[in-house]
Amino acid sequence: MPVRRGHVAPQNTFLDTIIRKFEGQSRKFIIANARVENCAVIYCNDGFCELCGYSRAEVMQRPCTCDFLHGPRTQRRAAAQIAQALLGAEERKVEIAFYRKDGSCFLCLVDVVPVKNEDGAVIMFILNFEVVMEKDMVGSPAHDTNHRGPPTSWLAPGRAKTFRLKLPALLALTARESSVRSGGAGGAGAPGAVVVDVDLTPAAPSSESLALDEVTAMDNHVAGLGPAEERRALVGPGSPPRSAPGQLPSPRAHSLNPDASGSSCSLARTRSRESCASVRRASSADDIEAMRAGVLPPPPRHASTGAMHPLRSGLLNSTSDSDLVRYRTISKIPQITLNFVDLKGDPFLASPTSDREIIAPKIKERTHNVTEKVTQVLSLGADVLPEYKLQAPRIHRWTILHYSPFKAVWDWLILLLVIYTAVFTPYSAAFLLKETEEGPPATECGYACQPLAVVDLIVDIMFIVDILINFRTTYVNANEEVVSHPGRIAVHYFKGWFLIDMVAAIPFDLLI
Rank of each mutant, 00 (worst) to 15 (best):
V374C: 01
L165V: 06
L267S: 08
I358E: 07
E372D: 04
D111C: 05
V370S: 01
T329A: 13
H147C: 05
S263K: 15
P361K: 09
K166D: 08
C66G: 01
T305A: 14
P72T: 04
T145F: 04
D144Q: 15
A169G: 15
A34F: 01
G345S: 07
R20Y: 04
V341R: 15
A382V: 06
I333G: 14
S304Q: 15
N12K: 12
R27F: 09
H368Y: 14
S178M: 06
M291G: 06
L167M: 15
G238M: 08
A260D: 15
T305Q: 11
D213N: 01
V198H: 04
G236Q: 01
P386T: 01
D197G: 01
S243K: 03
V198I: 12
A89W: 13
R280C: 08
P150I: 06
S272R: 08
Q61N: 09
E50N: 12
C265K: 14
Q11W: 07
V325D: 14
P150M: 07
A223S: 07
P63M: 04
P300Q: 03
S153A: 07
A211H: 15
A350G: 10
A97E: 14
P347E: 11
F22A: 13
S250T: 07
V112P: 01
L267A: 08
P72H: 05
G47M: 06
L267Q: 06
D323C: 05
N38H: 15
L15G: 01
N369L: 09
T371P: 04
D144L: 14
H302Y: 07
D219F: 04
V377C: 06
S304N: 07
D355W: 07
D346W: 05
E23Q: 06
A244F: 01
I82Y: 05
V41M: 06
A290Y: 04
E50H: 06
A188F: 05
V131M: 15
V374D: 05
N220I: 07
E274Q: 12
A185W: 03
R35C: 06
V195A: 06
C49V: 14
R181H: 06
E37I: 06
H309N: 14
R5H: 09
P63Y: 01
K373I: 10
P114L: 01
I19D: 01
P386V: 01
R73D: 08
L225I: 03
Q61A: 11
F340D: 08
A303M: 07
R35D: 14
L324T: 12
N33T: 09
V341H: 11
H254N: 07
R312H: 07
T367D: 12
K166Y: 01
P150D: 09
N12G: 15
D46L: 05
T367V: 09
L109H: 05
R366G: 05
S239T: 12
D111Y: 06
S239P: 07
L343M: 12
E134D: 12
D46W: 04
V279T: 07
A156P: 11
G149E: 10
P150N: 07
G381F: 04
F340K: 14
V341D: 12
V138F: 05
I126S: 06
R242P: 11
V112W: 01
A190P: 07
V3R: 07
E91L: 13
G6L: 11
G187E: 15
A277K: 14
I82K: 01
N257L: 08
E134A: 08
D102L: 01
V59N: 01
K161F: 04
R366V: 11
E289P: 08
A142I: 09
H309Q: 08
E91Y: 15
E118N: 07
D213Y: 03
N220D: 07
S243A: 10
E372P: 05
V36E: 13
S266Y: 07
R4I: 14
R56G: 01
C105N: 07
A350I: 09
G158F: 13
P347Q: 10
P300D: 14
Q61I: 01
T145G: 08
L316H: 14
E230G: 06
K135M: 05
C265V: 12
P202D: 14
A217K: 14
D67P: 14
C64D: 01
A32H: 01
N369Q: 11
A307Y: 13
Q75E: 15
S313W: 01
V3L: 13
S278H: 15
V41H: 01
Y327W: 09
D144Y: 06
S379W: 08
L343E: 05
S322F: 12
R148E: 15
V8W: 14
C49K: 03
N220L: 06
G381Q: 07
E214K: 05
M60W: 01
H7Y: 06
G246D: 04
T162L: 15
L170C: 15
V279P: 06
R181V: 09
A80Q: 10
G183I: 14
P297D: 12
L173H: 15
L267Y: 14
V94H: 03
E118L: 13
A244C: 08
K135T: 05
F106P: 01
H254E: 15
G187W: 11
V195Q: 01
V215L: 08
R176D: 06
K332G: 09
S275V: 07
